[in-house]
Write a protein that binds this DNA or RNA. Sequence first.
DNA 1: TCTGGGGTCCTAGGACCC
DNA 2: TCTGGGGTCCTAGGACCC
Length: 438
Amino acid sequence: MTLTMYALVDCNNFYVSCERVFAPQWQGRPVVVLSNNDGCLISRSDEAKVLGFKMGEPYHQVRPLLELSQVKVFSSNYALYGDMSRRVVQVLSEFAAGVEVYSIDEAFLDFRGMNWLAPDLQRYGEQLRERVWRATGIPTCVGIAPTKTLAKLANRLARKQLNPVKMLNSKAECQAALAQTLVGDVWGIGRRYARKLREQGIMTAADLAAQPESWVRRYLGGVVGGRLWRELHGQPCLEWNPSEHEDDDEHLTPGIGRHSVTHTRSFGCPQQELAALSEAVATFAARTAEKLRRHGLAAHLVTVLLGTDRYAPGIEPATRTAVVHLPIATHDTPLLTQAALRGLRQLHRPGVAYHRAGVLLSGLETAGQGQLDLFTSLAPLPPARLQLMTVLDRLNNQFGRHTVRLAAAAGPNPGWAGRRAYQSPAYTTDWENLWQLK
DNA sequence: TCTGGGGTCCTAGGACCC
DNA sequence: TCTGGGGTCCTAGGACCC
């Protein structure tokens, strides 16, 4: 029998699990990982969850409690997590014809057209999970079902049961799974929609699926609602976007069709001076430019954003943006930095304390294939400049992110840099660290 | 003192064009 | 009383995801 099936493999408490691979003394003990700038909790071990620590809680609020409960705290270390993620995907790709990397800790596998019996597929899921665990030290849960949305749902259920692999193979199994799932836990239904649905008496995914499709479309944003309804009924209608292997060390949404690249950061302490803000923005512009080159893209639009304290009451919007149009799409660090600094000068108001800044590149096209500017007959970049960027990326890749940078960017540990007081060493990627290990 | 960051898709409305 | 209609591009805003 041919089964039309997708699997969703999700790494358990991924950032915590990554830290534990290199600090095994924390297995079985409470651990949390903080967001950038040590702002809030973004990953918790099961033990920390039991203690009552919540996702997204501000660190400064729960810090005394964490210390009291002897919870181990890590600052986030995306270089490490990105590398571990790549290892997991590498293993997964041995088990399916297609892999779609959905986020840093999740991937869909394409099991369509597999000429197998259901019990074999269940065992196959268990094998691949075992193999990921042995090869990387990362624990996972696996959901297998006829649509991506149902695979997500099965994955959620797998987390709660003894066997971490859950397969939905019949109408009855799907129906039972829908009945066990609260409507707010369905993929694609966030807090707003969940509340709206509960007000209508829709409590579970089964309640939602039992409504007519037209009703669901009316309440859940039109076409999106329609797709969701059909996916819950076992009709696949989300696209399959197989991923190429990517070299990225951050959160990423892989695939060819990306529309923007951004880098924004909160400051360690508020900044007023144009000089310090320029350093920050130049540094962020360089980071976006690197990402652009890594993806083989060039950008037409540079958006700079400057943010004040989001949590302070006030009438003024907390974030303002300035858009700079480039006549020719580019991925050249100096050109993008110049544009970003121009945007910054437009935005900057003397005497205002800024808490965060960012650079967003959009209007993307494949590098080197852009239209030549007919009036100036300029190619996007002179060859020497291209070569310089290639060398720059290679050096920074090999010896660490800030080895070579423009003079406009900052020196080490500037005042605007975020806090990361509890970061683990870059076990897998840092050149100096590898050197010490020898 | 201290509250993350990077993405996606969809819709509505205005400007502009023929 | 009539004061077109359809297509496209852009932006802003709302919803969602991890």
